Lab assay of single mutants.
Amino acid sequence: MFYPNSPQTSPQLTQIPYGQQYAMMQRQIQQPYHPFATTEPQARLYPYHYQGPIQQEQGGFITQQSTAASPQYVQMRVTPVDQSIMSGYPNQTANGSSSSSFNYNIHPQQQQQQQQQQQQLRHHAMPVGSVPLQDDRYRKQLIVNYLAPDVTSTDLHELFSRFGELDGARIIYDKQTNMSKGYGFVYFCHAEDAKEAVERMSGYEFHGKWLKVGYSTNPLNIVPSNSSPYVHAGSRGAAG
């Protein structure tokens, strides 16, 4: 039997160049792979992502010199942007860049009308829970959420009447099932009393439920100042 490094198959040491006398086997001759043993700084910083320098080929596509990437890492192929796409944008300079302001050559009167329309939209648009300043009635009506099913309009009136005089209180019921929808409205005579009720009743436990109280901004629920107070009856038909 002959071994790869046996004296019968191995040459004389004098015939082997210096430095390879003890590297006779194939696994010894093959050098191990060192990912950080390279002179390129990109490979030292990113050993798993770097795959060699990027070269520009004919046709405008950018390719990489090395083989496919590892399945664990996804390499994105980048193509140059066609400058003709950006030619339609206004205020574009000769080098292809555009300024931040756009001039669509709008007539001054049209621009003024658009600004007025935007101001009107901001004036009428009102986020949930906010209180408008032009109508004091919005500051007097509250919406009470997360009410228990057994709470009546009379219970709601008695709960909030300790903060001040009320114009009314009612629970909203479903017309088909005649069941409470879980929320109601309270109408105060003074805005200061309503503000105190919002601050003190939010998070209050009532009939096993934690109440959420806020201003009601729905104009359909506003009680006119010259109208008669609501009837605080315990029956659902009268309260709904």
Results as ranks from 00 to 15, higher is better:
C189D: 03
A169T: 13
T152E: 04
L121V: 09
Q20L: 04
S66Y: 11
T39Y: 06
T93W: 06
V78T: 14
L133K: 14
Q75C: 02
M201L: 04
Q92V: 06
S99N: 10
I171G: 00
H49N: 11
I172Y: 00
M179K: 05
A94K: 14
A191Y: 07
G52P: 09
D193W: 02
Q110P: 08
Q134D: 07
R162G: 11
I172G: 01
E40P: 09
L159Q: 03
F61V: 12
P17V: 03
Y33F: 10
Q8P: 11
G214N: 07
H124F: 05
Q112R: 12
Q72Y: 07
L159C: 08
N218H: 03
Q75S: 10
D174G: 02
Y73V: 12
S161Y: 14
Y104N: 11
A191V: 13
G88H: 08
Q21P: 13
Q75G: 14
I54P: 14
Q12G: 13
S153G: 15
L121K: 10
V74F: 09
A239V: 10
Q92P: 08
R139Q: 06
N91K: 15
D167L: 03
Y215F: 04
Q28Y: 05
V78P: 11
G184V: 02
C189L: 05
Q118A: 07
V81K: 15
P11D: 04
G60H: 13
N145C: 03
N105G: 09
H232N: 13
P229C: 10
A68K: 15
F206K: 00
Y3P: 11
P4Y: 03
Q72I: 03
L142T: 02
A69E: 07
Q8I: 08
S66D: 08
P41Y: 09
Y204D: 01
D174N: 07
P7C: 07
P229G: 07
Q56G: 11
L156A: 00
F188W: 00
T177P: 00
S153Q: 15
L159E: 03
Q134P: 12
A169S: 11
T177I: 13
R27M: 01
K212P: 00
Q118C: 08
Q92R: 13
R77M: 00
Q134T: 09
Q113K: 13
H107T: 06
V231D: 05
E199D: 10
G168H: 00
P127T: 10
H123Q: 10
Y33R: 15
G164E: 01
I171V: 05
Y48A: 14
V186G: 01
D135R: 04
A69G: 06
F206R: 01
Q55P: 08
Q15W: 02
K209V: 01
P7Q: 12
N178V: 13
G208P: 00
I143K: 01
Q28C: 04
G88S: 09
M25E: 15
A125Y: 10
S153T: 03
R77L: 02
H232E: 03
Q116A: 08
S180A: 10
Q115W: 08
D82S: 12
D174S: 06
Q28E: 05
F36G: 10
S101H: 08
Q83K: 14
S130H: 14
S99L: 07
S180Y: 00
K209C: 02
H232M: 12
N5H: 08
P219V: 01
Q141G: 00
R122T: 04
Y104F: 11
T63E: 08
N103M: 04
D136V: 06
A239I: 05
K140E: 02
A23K: 15
S161M: 13
L142G: 00
S98Q: 10
D150L: 11
H123R: 12
T38R: 13
Q64M: 05
T14V: 06
Q51E: 09
L159H: 00
Y3N: 12
S100M: 03
Q31I: 05
Q114C: 10
D82L: 04
